[in-house]
Design a protein around this nucleic acid. Sequence first.
DNA 1: ACCCAGGTGGCTT
DNA 2: AAGCCACATGGG
Length: 278
Amino acid sequence: MKKTKTIIIEGVKDIDLTHIFECGQCFRWVPAEGGEYAGAAGDKAARVSLEGDELTVEATGGDEAFWRGYFDLGTDYGRIRAALADGEPRIEAACRYGYGIRILKQDPFETIISFIISQNNNIPRIRKNIESLCRTYGHPIEGSEEVSSDGEKVYSFPSPEALAEAGVSDLAALRLGYRSEYIKASAKQYLAEGCPACREELLSFHGIGPKVANCIMLFGLRDTAAFPVDTWVKQIMNDMYGFEMSDVKGMQAFAAEKFGPLAGYAQQYLFYYYRDRK
DNA sequence: ACCCAGGTGGCTT
DNA sequence: AAGCCACATGGG
């Protein structure tokens, strides 16, 4: 008896699974056979495949509306790429390279903790850290073995309660390093105050600074004007536009002026293009 | 052995 | 406001 359900969404455009899942916005999806991806969003596990303009999601939960929202299918990315190149022609190569990227609508709490872990860390290790956090503080997702890449259970992302109650030394035992106390403190604050809605609230969390706040705004709160500046973007802005590496303010202002409410998309195309190029 | 990674907090100029 | 530095860990 099958525990998952299959959702077929036809007529999708501007979508490339590899680019979506490898562009650095999420950390829990892995390639499966035949170009498919398997992974999880919050407490839902799924396997995703694309054939032509038909997107198939085999999932343990979430209806079609949820997965449409997750993949941002209501947004016209062709138009966005055109608008970006219109505002700043030098970004066109990056947009072309990252064809099919979509900014996933991720759970805010998952985004908060994931990007706290991301600071001063590398992507393979971020993925491992998040995986051990889920295995220790999440729960095995019912039916997930039917969609996982290895036939094993997938674990849900931990709840705010679970992380707020975790011991800092237990978190540290998962090799989370000095971020352990940031995780616990932020989970507690999230529980006490609810989901942060703006940059200022995010910055009041222990372990969230300007860069991580921007990532959370973009990936978790869908504020597409957010323009996260990390070491890669600094390098891009230096190489392409001659900004001093320390002039993050200038980079932000440039992005706001050139791209406005689309700056987040621009950042993602630039980041992916440049990071892959190394 | 070494430098670095989707940085931040805290302290000192 | 700007400039240091420590921080935990392991990828390459």
